[in-house]
């Protein structure tokens, strides 16, 4: 091979770059996110009423769009009532509706957001619930 020094050095840099994820995480323990839904407020509810505003299948991928629509509904239209898919209505409020049940932001919201590296800007304006447990 001609100019083998330069070419092999270049190839080594290339291999180091593309295999970067394979060796970067070695030895680090990455816990799977487990969200907790055992807050006192949820425990207080009777078994059959322990439901979010929409189904889990809807909320898990779609909660951010729901919250975005909620914000637009309140801020732009002044409409504070949300009628869900089963015909039940809810007061539109992140702090008073969502966080009333999910008062454990650290063990609920943050679990997946931190795992996925997502930084939602909810709390730029809203006040995060105070949590005693650390």
């Amino acid at each position: 091979m001609y100019d083998s020094g330069k070419i092999i050095a270049g190839l080594l840099i290339f291999v180091a770059l593309v295999t970067f994820p394979f060796y970067f995480n070695v030895g680090k323990v990455i816990a799977k996110p487990e969200t907790k839904i055992d807050t006192p407020e949820i425990q207080k509810l009777p078994e059959h009423e322990r439901k979010c505003v929409e189904s889990k299948e809807f909320m898990r991928p779609g909660h951010m769009q729901l919250l975005n629509n909620w914000r637009d509904s309140v801020v732009r239209n002044g409409d504070r009532i949300y009628l869900n898919s089963t015909g039940k209505d809810f007061d539109i409020s992140l702090q008073n509706t969502c966080m009333k049940c999910h008062s454990n932001k650290k063990n609920f919201c943050d679990k997946c957001h931190n795992y996925m590296g997502v930084k939602p800007y909810c709390w730029d304006c809203h006040i995060a619930p105070k949590e005693n447990e650390t």
Partner: peptide, 27 residues
């Protein structure tokens, strides 16, 4: 790379925030 790194480093957050700085829609 946020899918391939356990604790996403701040440089990736920086790139993401610059790339999405128009703050249109959700996500």
């Amino acid at each position: 790379y946020r899918f391939f790194i356990g604790e996403v480093p701040s440089v990736i957050h920086l790139i993401e925030s610059l790339d999405s700085f128009l703050q249109v829609g959700v996500p």
